[in-house]
Amino acid sequence: MLEIGDDAPDVTAPMATPEAARETDRGSYTGDDVREFSLSDPLEDGPVVLAFYPGVFSRTCTRELCELRDWKADLADLDAPLYGVSVDSPWSLLAFIDEYDLQYPLVSGFNNDVIDDFGVRREDSIMRGIANRAVFVVAPDGTVTYTWKATEPLTFPDTDEVEAAVAEAAGTK
């Protein structure tokens, strides 16, 4: 797993957006509904929060992503975009965004190296290959300034710590 002070890789991956989820009927998604995410793009405007999670529509991940949805308004004042990241396909991510009214994009680690590049791919158990639950704050210069990894099920990051890390990375703290 990347550590504080490491350079974040400039990953590129498919992304499901709230706009695309709203514009297309569920079950009718195509490649035209998928956008490209490149970490360097949002970093031009300030720090970025990446929340890795095992998979949409699972009990714990649904709870976490909805908690982040509700918390996202707090980050709006800090002007830091939040992206969820999992190995799910972009189409299942679009359906999840639609189902739970998420207002932030979800990045697909399906068939690319984004999960590996951040060092959060689960390597053991029947669920090997999915992402471990982890959060990173990346500063505009691409440096990782905050990390968190779940050590047991049903644990989530302290959003106050994430907010403080974003403020520090943005130079507002």
Results as ranks from 00 to 15, higher is better:
D10N: 15
D117I: 04
D32F: 01
A95L: 03
E163W: 00
F57W: 14
P42I: 05
G31R: 02
A95S: 15
C61Y: 14
L2Y: 03
G46C: 11
R133V: 07
G27E: 02
L43W: 01
I4C: 08
P153S: 06
Y104G: 05
T30E: 00
Y29D: 03
V56K: 00
L154R: 14
A8Q: 09
G129S: 06
T62R: 01
L106R: 12
G129P: 11
E168T: 14
E161L: 11
A13Y: 01
Y104D: 03
P153M: 09
G55C: 10
V107Q: 04
I97Q: 06
V162I: 15
L102C: 01
E67N: 15
A16S: 08
D41I: 04
V135R: 05
G129W: 13
R128M: 07
Y104N: 04
P157C: 00
Y104W: 08
P157W: 00
E36A: 00
S38I: 06
T147K: 00
P157K: 01
R63Q: 08
A169L: 12
R122T: 06
T145G: 15
G46N: 10
Y53N: 04
L2H: 02
E161N: 07
C66M: 09
G171M: 10
T17L: 12
V49W: 05
L65H: 15
F96L: 11
L43M: 05
S28M: 08
L65N: 14
R22A: 13
V11K: 10
F110E: 08
I115Q: 04
V162C: 05
T155R: 12
T60A: 15
M127I: 12
F118E: 03
P153V: 10
N111H: 06
A73K: 15
F57A: 12
V48H: 06
L43R: 02
R128W: 03
E99F: 05
Y29L: 03
E23W: 02
A165I: 08
D45I: 04
G119P: 07
L93P: 01
A170V: 10
G46W: 10
D101N: 15
D117F: 02
P81D: 11
V87L: 03
V138S: 07
G46M: 13
T145I: 15
V114A: 08
V135N: 07
S58G: 09
S38K: 14
G31T: 02
P42V: 05
R128K: 12
A95H: 06
E67Q: 14
Q103A: 15
M1A: 09
R128T: 08
S125R: 14
V49H: 03
A76Q: 15
V138L: 13
K173Y: 10
A51N: 12
S40W: 01
P42E: 10
L102Q: 00
F37Q: 00
G129C: 12
G5C: 02
V87R: 12
A16P: 00
M127V: 10
T24K: 14
D124R: 13
L2D: 03
D45N: 15
R59C: 02
G119F: 08
R122Q: 10
F52H: 01
D45A: 15
T17A: 10
T155F: 06
M1R: 09
D74N: 11
S40Y: 01
T24H: 05
S92K: 12
Y53L: 04
V85L: 06
A165N: 04
A165T: 05
A76S: 14
G55T: 07
G171V: 13
